[in-house]
Amino acid sequence: MIASVGRTGAWPQAGRISALVLLAALARAAIEPMGEGMATAAFATVLLAGMVLTRPTSPLMGEGWSGGAAYSRWNTGRSLLGGLVVAALIVAPGLPALAGAGAGHASRGLDGWWAWAAVTALVATLEEVAIRGALQGALTRGAGTLPAIAAGAAVFALIHLPRYGLGGLPLDFAVGVALGGLRAVSGRVLPCAVAHTAADWAAWWMA
């Protein structure tokens, strides 16, 4: 499938994927005044629609949400472990400063954790499928690995702009570069989805 998409079709494909992801982020920002639940639902719906179109036969995204698992040397166990290690490395540097600031993170119990965690995992996974799977996959074929990682990180940072503002841009870009590197190292989306989800989950205790 990767070969069949070809180098020449990679750029339009990357453009369509970027447009889809940015459209999802804009939909979320536009609906946000109606509530976070509605906004997240809109974001997930647009990305989910994109994911349905990422079947391996889809002309829109070609390689699809399997994220190149068939071509990777990383099996599922290694992907899970790798994702968790990267998540720990993303989260760990912030721990001492947060503890020093006396954040009330220990006070949050597990009430509501499962629903929150499920939605967070869903959104994180959808983003990884779209950005690290489809977008980075297409750009790697069109422009090479490093430009693809940088472009994926830029889109990743941009879609979080409405939510976290300019202040969140550097951190989101840096994490995007790390996740893009993980995607390229592993050849799979799964470790990126695990890392992203686990880092998000850590906020339950850290925020």
């Binding site: 994180a124 983003e127 979080h160 989101d172 992203h196 850590a202 906020a203």
Partner: peptide, 8 residues
């Protein structure tokens, strides 16, 4: 800042 990139 806590590393929440997404979700609710």
């Amino acid at each position: 800042s806590p590393p929440l990139f997404d979700g609710l």
